[in-house]
Design a protein around this nucleic acid. Sequence first.
DNA 1: GGCTATTAGTTAGCCGGCTAACATGTATCC
DNA 2: GGATACATGTTAGCCGGCTAACTAATAGCC
Lengths: 162, 162
Amino acid sequence: MAFLLRELPDRALLEEFAGEFTHLDVDATLAYLRLLRLGSEMLDGLDRFLAGEDMTHGRWLTLVVLHRSGGRLLPSELAEKQGVTRATMTGLLTKLVDRGLVERELDDRDGRREAAVLTATGRRFVRRVLPKVYRHINAELAPLSPKDRRALARVLNKLIDP
Amino acid sequence: MAFLLRELPDRALLEEFAGEFTHLDVDATLAYLRLLRLGSEMLDGLDRFLAGEDMTHGRWLTLVVLHRSGGRLLPSELAEKQGVTRATMTGLLTKLVDRGLVERELDDRDGRREAAVLTATGRRFVRRVLPKVYRHINAELAPLSPKDRRALARVLNKLIDP
DNA sequence: GGCTATTAGTTAGCCGGCTAACATGTATCC
DNA sequence: GGATACATGTTAGCCGGCTAACTAATAGCC
């Protein structure tokens, strides 16, 4: 799911279109298209970066969520927190288990539950790679001044928490 | 490629992490995570909206780029403008041709080239659906004031055109 | 205590990207 | 003008999401 429109319309072009097409709000459309484009681009960038650690953003997020939650969660809880389906989480966990970063532990009181547990190796991996990720993030946002970063975070939050 | 982290860390949590992990810039990380999350969420929303027109964002973008360019482009040009590979464009065009929205026209001067041409049906489709898309965009950005929209568009542009 | 509904996890198969390898046609250069 | 390089588009096969359908286990209700 990538949206990497290279040739985004500029304000002048959109204002021209606004005469032809109804409902066109130039500022909304500009912001929207740039948001989609940058979101995809940054996600692509994250995946290219994580490939150097033989990792994908999906599995990485699972590790980070697990780490942040004390290292033990049910697959359904992980799926909910991460925003993927349980089916997808099954696949993510299987690959993390194959790599020895996570283990599955059956609940002896409820046979349906099988918690995902971060292994020592998994914990080391997160602690080793997290600083690199933060550096990657800083590099991605380097063109913005500290003030712009705060403004961006603040405005985006209004869309998340209206 | 979705990044829909439901449970984004807040400022307080990141500040706590900043003590533990080096290289962590709280504002950069907040903005970055929200950007990824919203980009994925909006792209998902666009796909859900377009599904009502039996359309996907990939094919829709191809139609719009074609429309904006006068209705005739080479697949390689389309791929470049849209930010997908030529291989992906082959698939997108095949589906649009199947639906009668686009036709392929062999170049009689260069046998390698086979331009994609918007049909009358394709043109009508774009003119019919574009206003709905603009309304969708307005609805997505409704939580933002006009001032916030301008600020968002301006800051994002610094990341696209540093 | 035994149907029934619900919950947890998995499996199967789809979809839209990707890369790599492949025709096929054109350009270049000796 | 023929070998070689390059450009265009397609194919084959991978990957990470998804939905829908399934199994297994628990909970609830009569």
